[in-house]
Design a protein around this nucleic acid. Structure first.
Length: 861
RNA sequence: GCCGGUGUGGCGGAAUGGUAGACGCAGGGGAUUCAAAAUCCCCCGAUGGCAACGUCGUGUGGGUUCGAGUCCCUCCACCGGCACCA
């Protein structure tokens, strides 16, 4: 038998032989042109269709796309293409998160301009993304650094200012005393400035804030309504918002005056051994001004970065102010007052009482300064004994109170806190207060490449909003980055202006906005990217909410929380409806793409990294062996990067897309391996070959038809389920299996053609170009991209027999095939008659026989 | 330090509390070929056994259950976040 299309063949048909070769480069550009010509992926507001909005977190325009992008956007593309084929009006846009520090860093290093650098990067990245064949409506593209976008962001800011959602207050920043500039957290390395190397200080600055804390309760409560968000993300947000009930009360100072403290553990009041105040506490500042020794300590205490991590892990320092307070239960019991570097002014009242027995941080502090450690409770059933470390059980665990003052002797921390609050309130000592950990969102950045904050400082009128007709307040182009600091600050003509209210000389605000602001509402802007207001309410009403949002787990807290806040603020200012305050109906967090790192060492023993393409079988071209470091997130500095463009050029976009979806579950990291990519390309070539061979078969029936069609309907069911539940790797495994079934099938030409067409269609969300090609070769009508998704026929999925494994004491010993509907009593008889069972039982009588219908049988002896 | 997650063959991984290792890669054997490439078929956790078959096995140690990769507790390792990286 000759197989048409194989080479060599006795009577080769040149046309078929040529077409049987899988040529992704030719296929992919051809079909991309067809989609563009037909505007297949243009999002069209269609009142008669259900809409579907799928959004991947937009990229920062670094200049090169990486495999993580390919994976992220391919996942969204699978969903978008699937929804298109199920009759939805699909919105699948793309944009650029274009403001931020790297552009300024590049300008400092190579002398260019952040704007030029950014727009060039955008052009480069767009050119790299287009060959991937993503079903994106490119007509909606924008960058957050487009004045058209950030002008509307300024309008939004002014509306929020008017509604009281924005205000100014002091807050600490990382200050580089040598460069005289504010540093980002990532620019502080081991407490030192990244360029100057100077010890970083925490310094207070007047800054702009969004009142996100006013929404704490709502942001927390509404998490419950987000059914299609990962539980872990909701838990992280819930912990971040951090609702807690505690006691706020005042200690009386022995010298008069009071210190107001807040505690979440009032039940440990009898274990108090000191009072601590933040170095930024008003009392600390008062003492600092009067006493040089206190001032010297405060300078020390303010050293280091502002991150919670730096404060929590840094050395705990305290200074005994000499002041004493009286314990609220016993005026004769005096506690020392310390200034301590680990107490934040931003949380609670900036003052605490320390209970070393039940807080590890306080324990270390007390040990260091020789303060008493007084246990309040012990593990249930254990006697009191000297502690080697703080005893901090979960609040839900019952413990034995040896120095309790309210509630039962044995109770949970939770119960004890409530009892303690009630007790203190009844004695007139403070009151129960519910507080949140969530702080207001500081949006001021002392940097150039961001959205200017549209306000003006006037000596007579104070802070005056810019008039809306003057928006956008555009960034000036003529700036330099040869000196550290914000070029806007030293730009005379831009900075100097007149007050919109009184017309006097005034100064423009030179702080720009945190880039998180840009990404907190872009999803809404995509619904009408060129509207003359932040949103077009009719378009927003149709397209919002985002039905499926996809992005990295690293955004689980800040970006998503800020976006939820912004959607609420946009509702309050009339830019989104009340139904859009939770903007993302479903969220999926995908893993990273990783790769091994290849390293050698130079003469000085310093590591030298090598690109994967320079390494073959663990050796460099010159034969030198490389050290292989296990897979890590792809990063330029470690050179463990695979350029997607090389992959697309070598194998085609469909191979890149299929590979990043196969093997690893999407929420987990995927490791890029050269052999994996190679194998994927081979598989796609095989599918192409199998299908083109089928094209040439005559129509007709054969005995294998039923088996093949049953397998086809199972594949439809399984792949559909996989796509709908983000089980892309599972869907692909089923497609491999179905391809094998089709290749071995003895069905007739008619059934095979149907099966092959269905295979092409089921693959189309992942390998859209190859699928279009096969669909058209196999006689599919129109484009596979817009063809109706196949439906599994329930009747073809019914099984009549099932194989039951038989376990004895939980170990598998045998199996039997029984009709699916056989009653359990009948199954029992068959099981006990089974030869292997009789042998395994060896005359012993079964104690118990468990039959789980359709699943398993277990005999207990 | 605090919060969240992950851990299964040589490798990526599959498995509503019900046959651990689907599917793929790598590896081994064979077919086809003058030869090769390509393709096709078979084997492939460890260990004992000629075999039938047995024993062990899902990071560690315990627990719940007729039955645990899956649920609970302990510890270890790694990853993400910690409010100015995006």
């Amino acid at each position: 038998m000759t197989t048409p299309g194989r080479w060599p063949a006795p009577f080769p048909c040149p046309r078929t032989a040529l077409m049987s070769r899988y040529a992704p480069a030719e296929i992919e550009s051809r079909w991309q042109a067809v989609w563009a010509e037909h505007e297949t992926f243009k999002a069209v507001h269609s009142a008669n269709k259900p809409k579907y909005y799928v959004l991947e977190m937009f990229p920062y325009p670094s200049g090169r796309i990486h495999m993580g992008h390919v994976r992220n956007y391919t996942m969204g593309d699978v969903i978008a293409r699937y929804k298109l084929s199920t009759g939805h009006a699909v919105l699948h846009p793309m944009g650029w998160d274009a403001f931020g520090m790297p552009a300024e860093n590049a300008a400092m290093q190579s002398g260019g301009h952040p704007k030029d650098w950014t727009y060039q990067n955008i052009a480069d990245m767009r050119a790299q993304m287009k060959p991937l064949g993503l079903s994106i409506d490119w007509s909606r593209e924008f960058a957050t650094c487009d004045p058209e976008y950030y002008g509307q962001q300024q309008a939004l800011f002014l509306d929020m200012l008017e509604k009281g959602l924005v205000y100014r207050k002091n807050a600490v920043v990382n200050w580089d005393p040598v460069d005289m500039t504010v540093l980002a957290n990532e620019q502080v390395i081991d407490g030192k400035g990244w360029r100057s190397g100077a010890d970083v200080e925490r310094r207070e600055l007047t800054q702009w804030f969004f009142k996100i804390s006013a929404q704490s309760e709502d942001l927390l409560e509404q998490l419950d309504s987000l059914d299609d968000w990962p539980a872990k993300v909701k838990l992280m947000q819930s912990n971040w918002i951090g609702k807690s009930r505690g006691l706020q009360f005042a200690f009386d100072r022995t010298d008069g005056g009071q210190i107001e403290v807040y505690t979440t553990r009032p039940d440990t009041l009898m274990g108090a051994s000191f009072v601590g105040i933040s170095p930024d506490h008003p009392l600390a500042k008062e003492l600092e001004a009067a006493d040089p020794k206190v001032a010297a300590f405060c300078i020390d205490a303010r050293k280091g970065g502002t991150t919670e991590e730096a404060i929590e892990t840094g050395e705990k320092l305290g200074y005994d102010t000499g002041l004493r307070v009286k314990h609220p239960f016993d005026p004769a019991w005096e506690l020392p007052v310390y200034i301590a570097n680990f107490i934040l002014m931003d949380y609670g009242t900036g003052a605490i009482f320390g209970c070393p027995a039940h807080d590890q941080r306080d324990f270390e502090f007390a040990t260091k300064y020789g303060l008493p450690i007084i246990p309040v409770f012990t593990p249930e059933g254990e006697a009191e004994q000297p502690l080697k470390a703080a005893f901090v059980p979960p609040k839900t665990e019952p413990v034995h109170y040896v120095r309790g003052f309210a509630g039962a002797d044995v109770q949970t921390g939770e119960a004890a806190v409530n009892a303690a609050v009630d007790h203190c309130e009844s004695r007139g000592i403070g009151q129960g207060v519910t507080k949140f950990r969530l702080r207001d969102w500081g949006l001021s950045r002392q940097r150039y490449w961001g959205c200017p904050i549209p306000v003006i400082h006037c000596d007579t009128c104070g802070v005056v909003p810019e008039k809306k007709e003057n928006l956008p307040v555009e960034l000036p182009y003529d700036v330099t980055f040869d000196v550290p600091g914000n070029p806007l600050d030293r730009h005379p003509t831009w900075r100097n202006c007149t007050c919109p209210k009184c017309g006097a000389d005034a100064r423009r605000e030179t702080d720009t906005m945190d880039t998180f602001v840009d990404s907190s509402w872009y999803y809404a802007r995509f619904t009408a990217p060129h509207a003359k207001t932040p949103t077009d309410m009719a378009e927003a009403a149709y397209w919002m909410n985002v039905d499926q949002y996809i992005g990295g787990i690293e955004h689980a807290i800040l970006h998503l929380l800020y976006s939820r806040f912004f959607a609420r603020a946009m509702h309050q200012t009339g830019h989104l409806s009340s139904t859009a305050v939770e903007p993302f109906d479903a969220l999926f967090t995908q893993g990273m793409v990783t790769h091994e790192i290849y390293m050698t060492r130079d003469a000085n023993g310093r590591p030298v990294y090598h690109l994967p393409e320079d390494v073959t079988d663990g050796k460099l071209a010159d034969g030198m062996a490389v050290e292989i470091i296990p897979s890590a997130k792809m990063s330029k500095s470690k050179k463990n990067v695979v350029d997607p463009m090389n992959i697309v050029a070598t194998y085609g976009a469909d191979t890149a897309r299929w590979f990043v979806l196969s093997d690893s579950p999407p929420e987990r990291d995927v490791e890029w391996t050269a052999s994996g990519a190679d194998a994927t390309a081979k598989h796609l070539a095989r599918v192409h070959r199998i299908c083109t061979e089928i094209t040439d078969l005559p129509d007709g029936t054969a005995k294998g038809d039923d088996d093949l069609l049953r397998a086809m309907h199972k594949a439809i069911r399984d792949v559909t389920m996989g796509v709908e539940s983000f089980g892309f790797n599972a869907a692909i495994a089923k497609l491999y299996a179905f391809t094998n079934t089709l290749a071995k099938s003895e069905a007739g030409g008619t059934a095979k053609k149907l099966a092959a067409r269905t295979l092409a269609q089921l693959m189309s969300p992942m390998t859209p170009h190859l699928s279009e090609e096969l669909w058209s070769l196999l006689g599919g009508s129109g484009l596979v991209a817009t063809a109706r998704w196949p439906q599994a026929d329930e009747a073809m999925l019914v099984e009549t027999t099932v194989t039951l494994p038989i376990q004895i004491n939980g170990k598998r010993r045998s199996e039997i095939a029984v009709p699916t509907d056989m009653p359990a009593s009948e199954v029992e008889k068959l099981v006990l008659a089974d030869e292997a069972v009789i042998r395994a039982l060896d005359g012993a009588a079964p104690k118990k026989l468990i039959v789980v219908p359709g699943r398993i049988v277990n005999i207990v002896v």
